[in-house]
Design a protein around this nucleic acid. Structure first.
Lengths: 194, 194
DNA sequence: GTCTATACGAAGATAGAC
DNA sequence: GTCTATCTTCGTATAGAC
């Protein structure tokens, strides 16, 4: 519980989030994440008694919260600004990693673990997506959209950005992302006031 | 090369595609796919000398071609019919698997293998996505859209459907998919003639 | 309380018996 | 040509020395 322990915890969670985004859930190993955090293997189970499932859960929540906070801040300037912040964050991840990193939340959702159920990380992923959609939808509604239309557009935004990330990684190109971004801006502009 | 070999090959590739869609790339093991094809482990390397990389590449191409053929057939009745076919295929996968299966092409794109490069499966995935987008874009263009708008909308369709699949798996619900589908139909209807 | 050393299973791949 | 048995590596997790 002292500050050194907290730092190790933070470093492990951050490393896990990066590994999830790059290599996927099953290739995100305790060994590697603890190594990146410069801590011995045994200490992983001291800080995270429930092992990998716990680290992954925290990594998803951590990455989700980062995006969520930025989204929330920029949405105060309206839905267009919020959308642009959401887009630029993911665009940056793709560019900086040379299209080798994606979304750590997605990673948890598309790999059903072989062993036991391990439902908790998946539920955390669902919560993160719902949070992003909810924040976008609320802003769209405040700016003149009815509840149903706002919710639908918010879901389209999250889905198409996540999907665009996949297309970009496959193609090793930002082009799909920019095509999607352009259209989303058009859709948000169309009915929401500035 | 006789028919029994071909059957084994086909069964292995089909099993691999299903495992990719459900468990992801790294959890798709040679052992399990050959077991599902009711063939001994050693024979995997007889039929697929390049091992897992080769099976995965063929599984991605196989799954991609299945979707592509259906898309092509329905697009002859126009872009709306093509979109509906694309949507209903993926909706069916989600419902029938109780939201435990996704897109095998995506699986390859979001998990950078830990070991060597293994670029071939990723390139196959890029080809599949480009094929789907190209077919959709061509149909949209024939039905009155300019080339740029057609290409952008085609990319949005593929990206948002792939992303919607992820959201549905996380939430264990078809609701995100239906929200996205509804909007895509609106967008295709808007400018493309029936 | 921290961490080294290890148990145990499963992965990809192959050698070599039939 | 087919397949059993095995090599090597890496995964999660823990026992027990300091």
């Amino acid at each position: 519980m002292n500050s050194r322990q907290s730092n190790v915890r933070q470093r492990v969670v951050a490393a896990a989030a990066e590994m999830l985004a790059r290599h996927g859930l099953n290739a995100t190993s305790i060994r590697e994440m603890i190594k990146r955090a410069k801590a011995p293997l045994g200490s992983a189970y001291h800080h995270f008694p429930q092992g990998k499932e716990q680290v992954v859960l925290e990594a998803v929540a951590f990455a989700g919260a980062q995006v969520s906070h930025s989204l929330e801040r920029h949405l105060q300037a309206g839905p267009v600004a919020g959308l642009r912040s959401f887009l630029s964050m993911w665009r940056e991840v793709l560019i900086r990693s040379d299209f080798r990193m994606g979304c750590p939340v997605m990673a948890v959702a598309v790999e059903e673990p072989v062993g036991e159920a391990a439902k908790r990380p998946l539920e955390a992923a669902a919560k993160v997506f719902a949070d992003w959609e909810g924040k976008l939808a609320a802003a769209l509604q405040v700016h003149g959209r009815d509840a149903r239309s706002a919710a639908e557009l918010a879901t389209l935004i999250v889905a198409s950005v996540e999907g665009a990330i996949v297309l970009c990684r496959a193609r090793r190109s930002i082009s799909p992302f920019d095509k999607v971004a352009r259209q989303l801006e058009g859709l948000v502009h169309a009915q929401a006031s500035h």
